[in-house]
Amino acid sequence: MSNIYIVDDDQDIIDAVTMILEPQGHKISYQTNPKDIIEKASDFHADLIILDVIFPEEDDAGFKAARTLKLDEKTKEIPILMLSAVNEKGPYAGTFSNKDRDAIYLPVDQFAEKPLAPDKLLSLVGEMLQ
């Protein structure tokens, strides 16, 4: 079973994701802002990071955090699932459409829109952990 690290400013999302993933035997830890994410995620030995996009202090803090994670030796191998209420047709549409062309620009392994149905979340997480 795996260590899943959630970074989301919405405690309810953290709780809901935990309620779905914990019964599967995963160990969950979280933080509600993307500060010191490298240290915290590597200290937790995260196997997967579930990352939000919009944080109260900065609209695209999630993108920045993803870039930081993928550029650091300690965390670059950890798959990132970006989970956000922002959808592909939203204000970041351009960013998302770039993901195939330019992996550095949006360095996440998967993107999913909130709310994500429990079965979909489970299958996505299962896939990413393999």
């Binding site: 919405d10 309810d12 999302i13 809901a16 994701v17 309620m19 779905i20 919009i54 209420a85 922002v86 939203g90 204000p91 909130k114 709310p115 994500l116 149905a117 429990p118």
Partner: peptide, 20 residues
């Protein structure tokens, strides 16, 4: 855009709980 997004985010949490 902001207002709708602000609406959408908490609403996603509600929907997640209903699904759970």
């Amino acid at each position: 855009l902001n207002a709708t997004h602000q609406l959408k985010a908490p609403f996603a949490a509600i929907q997640s709980y209903v699904d759970i």
